[in-house]
Amino acid sequence: MILHLAASGDLWSQLFSFADYGELLALVKNSIFAGAVLGVVGGLIGVFVMQRDMAFAVHGISELSFAGASAALLFGANVVVGSLFGSLLAAVLIGLLGAKARDRNSIIAVLMPFGLGLGILFLALYPGRSANKFGLLTGQIVSVDDPQLGWLIGIGVVVLIGLLLMWRPLSFDSLDADVAAARGIPTRFVALAFMVLLGLAVAVSVQIVGALLVLSLLVTPAAAAMRVSSSPLLVPVLSVVFALVSVVGGILLALGSSLPISPYVTTISFVIYVVCRLVGVRRERGSRRLVSQAG
């Protein structure tokens, strides 16, 4: 019994330890700023990812982003630039070759194992610290230095400006591409431009939560928001709030532990989704009850 309690205490101290928390907090201020930028970017672009049914594309882009970052790590180049190159290459390929959903899924299914295989190869050849290798897959809480923070903020601003400029045509195209094309909207250009913005957002996300768990920030918050509202104004707001809570909350919880940031971010994001889903189910039942009573 005593050994069991001791083991439980050791496990708890690995998951949550707030000793010297104030000093540690000063070391990760860059990660918190980057996480906040990522929360806003991921929350907004995630709404369109859900509307366009492109969650699978996020994962496909992240694998080539991982390959690009791994190559940069191996050859001593800027990891953010490598991640950007891989993301944009995947995004453009998917955008150009995957106009139809069936073609898009096939292309993504081909790119994912290729990108993951390349990334693993580059990491296997990399002679440096194992923490750098692991961080590209699952995120690192102290991996964001000042130059990286500048890159991440700059990329985030580009994505936000692009989304604001494209918001109306992109919303129209996401809801009904055929009608949008009939109204004169250049749907092909809009789709390709969105893929480029998505590639940039994925590259930013990989730097914080790692390549394997990007979906927790670019898909789950928006999916949760859509469970509790259908308002074109409230859904993006809720998605951004959920993403911010997930990533900043995950960083703050991971700060006192020896574990990567990603388990905390994904757990918070998942809990938010479950709660929103339960709320959505309860509202739907209430609406059906009112309709049956009125009938």
Score class of each variant (00 low, 15 high):
Val81Cys: 01
Pro113Met: 03
Gly249Glu: 01
Val80Asn: 01
Gln293Val: 13
Ile61Ser: 01
Gly249Thr: 10
Val159Met: 03
Ile261Ser: 01
Gly42Arg: 06
Ala243Glu: 06
Gly156Ala: 03
Ser62Ile: 09
Pro113Phe: 05
Pro232Ile: 12
Ile141Val: 07
Gly115Phe: 06
Val49Gln: 00
Gly119Met: 03
Asn78Ile: 06
Ala224Lys: 09
Leu136Glu: 01
Ala72Lys: 10
Pro236Trp: 08
Phe172Met: 05
Gly115Arg: 08
Ala193Ser: 13
Arg129Glu: 08
Arg289Asn: 11
Ser246Glu: 05
Ala203Thr: 11
Ala36Val: 14
Pro236Gln: 02
Leu27Asn: 12
Leu213Trp: 12
Val214Phe: 13
Leu123Gln: 13
Val47Cys: 09
Leu165Cys: 02
Gly60Thr: 11
Val110Thr: 11
Ala254Arg: 08
Ser87Asn: 11
Ser292Ile: 11
Met112Pro: 04
Asn132Phe: 09
Ile45Phe: 09
Leu200Lys: 02
Tyr273Gln: 08
Leu278Lys: 13
Gly9Leu: 15
Ala182Asp: 08
His59Tyr: 08
Phe172Gly: 00
Gly22Met: 12
Gly150Lys: 08
Ala91Pro: 09
Gly95Leu: 10
Val209Ile: 12
Gly35Asp: 05
Thr220Lys: 10
Trp151Lys: 00
Leu116Thr: 12
Gly115Glu: 02
Tyr273Arg: 10
Leu96Ile: 09
Leu89Met: 14
Asp173Glu: 11
Leu218Gly: 01
Leu164Glu: 03
Ala254Pro: 12
Phe56Leu: 10
Leu234Gly: 02
Ser239Leu: 06
Met1Phe: 15
Ile61Asp: 00
Ala180Pro: 06
Ala90Glu: 04
Leu290His: 14
Arg52Met: 06
Ile268Phe: 05
Ile120Pro: 04
Val92Cys: 04
Lys29Trp: 15
Gly39Gln: 08
Val47Ile: 11
Phe33Asp: 00
Gly117Phe: 09
Gly76Met: 08
Gly68His: 09
Trp12Tyr: 15
Asp176Cys: 08
Val281Glu: 13
Phe122Asp: 00
Arg168Glu: 03
Phe18Tyr: 14
Leu73Arg: 12
Val271Ala: 12
Ile161Val: 13
Ala222Gln: 07
Gly119Asp: 03
Gln207Glu: 05
Leu212Phe: 13
Ala55Gly: 14
Gly60His: 05
Pro169Met: 02
Ser31Glu: 08
Val159Asn: 01
Ile61Met: 06
Gly82Thr: 07
Phe56Met: 03
Ile45Val: 13
Ile155Pro: 03
Tyr126His: 10
Phe194Leu: 03
Ala294Ile: 14
Ala223Gly: 13
Ala67Leu: 09
Val281Cys: 11
Ser171His: 08
Ala69Gly: 15
Ile94Glu: 01
Ala71Pro: 11
Arg102Ile: 08
Val214Pro: 05
Thr138Cys: 08
Leu255Phe: 10
Leu244Ile: 11
Leu198Lys: 07
Leu212Thr: 10
Leu125Met: 11
Ser87Thr: 07
Ala201Asp: 06
Ile120Gly: 01
Gly60Tyr: 09
Leu111Arg: 03
Gly43His: 09
Gly86Ser: 07
Arg283Ala: 14
Val248Tyr: 04
Leu15Gly: 07
Met226Gly: 15
Leu259Asp: 01
Ser287Thr: 14
Leu152Met: 05
Asn132Thr: 06
Ser262Gly: 07
